[in-house]
């Protein structure tokens, strides 16, 4: 963390050393995929929206720590992060309101399917995806705000 992107280096030189960058390039997809797996299988195995969302946020934070904040902010800007977080919260509310089709708030109205299958359990996987989106993007936005503040202070 000693050679920060704010010390005036060109964009290619920002971030950590070449070894860290190469390993990050190899593993980042796997980490993101693992987060999505944890979110999708929340109703079958340990995990769920909260843990998977934090893993998704960690994958983007990994990019930011290795490559510097400019490249990470180019992938998801702050405005897009805020929008995605609002979309996650609204999606959860819409799923809650769907319950009025059956008569009450938060009723599981969709078809239950057979247990032990990925597409089962009605609205629970959809709620997991909404919460995963919200938690992941929200925590990433928090970290982005902290890092941008640190960079602005050092200038």
């Amino acid at each position: 963390m000693s050679d920060n992107p704010n010390t005036g280096l060109p964009a290619g030189k920002a971030g950590m050393s070449l070894i860290v960058k190469t390993i990050t390039r190899l593993t980042i997809g796997l980490i993101l995929l693992f987060g999505i797996y944890i979110v999708m299988h929340g109703h079958l195995s340990p995990g769920g929206g909260f843990a998977g969302g934090v893993i998704i946020a960690l994958s983007f934070i990994h990019i930011m720590l290795a490559f510097g904040k400019d490249i990470a902010a180019a992938k998801i800007s702050r405005g897009l992060a805020s929008n995605l977080e609002s979309i996650g919260a609204l999606m959860f509310l819409v799923i809650a309101l769907l319950g009025f089709l059956g008569g009450s708030f938060f009723l599981n109205v969709l078809a239950k399917g057979r247990p032990f299958k990925l597409f089962s359990a009605g609205t629970i996987p959809l709620s997991n995806i909404a919460i995963g989106l919200k938690v992941g993007v929200g925590l990433f936005a928090i970290f982005l705000a902290l890092v941008i503040l640190e960079g602005a202070k050092r200038k």
């Binding site: 109703h43 079958l44 195995s45 769920g48 959860f92 599981n108 089962s120 359990a121 629970i124 709620s127």
Partner: peptide, 30 residues
């Protein structure tokens, strides 16, 4: 509920109001 993981069923179906409150708290924290 059709969910095998009982914790997930409690969080998102039986007690989904708590989760809604949690989402609100996280939103206000951000």
């Amino acid at each position: 509920t059709g969910a095998v993981n009982i914790v997930s069923a409690v969080v998102l179906d039986f007690r989904a109001y708590d989760t809604l409150g949690e989402v609100t708290v996280l939103f206000s924290a951000v």
